[in-house]
Amino acid sequence: MMQMADRIKLKVLDPGLLTTVQDSGRWGYQAFGVSPGGVMDEYAAELTNLLVGNPPDAALLEITLKGPTLRFEEEGWVALGGADCGATLDGKPVPNWSAFYGRAGSTLILGFVREGCRAYLTCAGGFDVPLVMGSRSTYLRAKIGGFQGRPLQEGDVLEGINLVEARDEPGKIVESIRPERDSDLPLTQSSTITLPPSLIPRYGSPILLRVLLGPQEDMFEPEGVETFFNSPYRISHEADRMGYRLEGPKINHRGKADIVSDALAKGAIQVPGHGMPIVMMADHQTTGGYPKLGTVILADQYLLAQGKPGDEVLFFPCTEEEAIVAWKERRDHLSLVRAYVDRLWRKYA
């Protein structure tokens, strides 16, 4: 086995607008009022993680609208994906959806997102912050997890997880590669570790979302349900990691617009008395007292996570069978891309 690199170290020179450490979520505590949290866009996060051979639950940076500026204090492999924010490494453009090697002293600058809303940056092994209740996700509301329970600030130093006990391939391969000469760096070669356009998701407006009705669809007028499915909505400025409030034609309730609180899932669409839908996102409250008209299907939730204020949203009814098929296709696609990236790394090594 080759000598292991020191742990990668990144210093935050500028934190960007809202940059937090996230992983696949803090599951198992919703009964106690703890949101599952985790990355908003699981699809982009998993693709980014697999670019450096990480498992889907490795911790990465979730970058919102405007990216941070980071300096490599110790060298190592990183990967970038999600919304393209025109990254540069020491002034040279870095392709989005790619893995690259940063030398100590290099500066990585992520700018404003060009399309979509959230970018993801990870390092080989994922970022090393303490596990809090089984997760490295930043839970802003409770100020726990991630980097000291808060968004990144100037001067913070992030380290990668020590991969001496490297897990599976291709993580082991990634870890074993220490480019000696700059000409060995993937960015300077024609064959970089980059996902081609055919394998990556596209973001933008309008956002088309498939919805399964329920659990409280019977609390709406049939005409209200029709309005919901036949009208354009816009993402309002009240759109954050907890939920997205949309604006558009009013959805009428049949009677009262509240219920005795019950559970809320990510993707659930609550409609309070004002008749505007609110879609629950990663840090959603675990219970809620407004009727839920429907739920955005798993396979489409990432599209909304990449939506920003002003984007148009259109809802379409769908069947549970279609939803499960779409989800299965997503999982299969991710397995295939993982195998493809594995092959790229073997070739590179």
Partner: peptide, 17 residues
Amino acid sequence: FLAMGEACVVVEFGNTI
């Protein structure tokens, strides 16, 4: 039994406190 998306079943026993 109510569905909240394809990944959740809500077992509802009533609608009162």
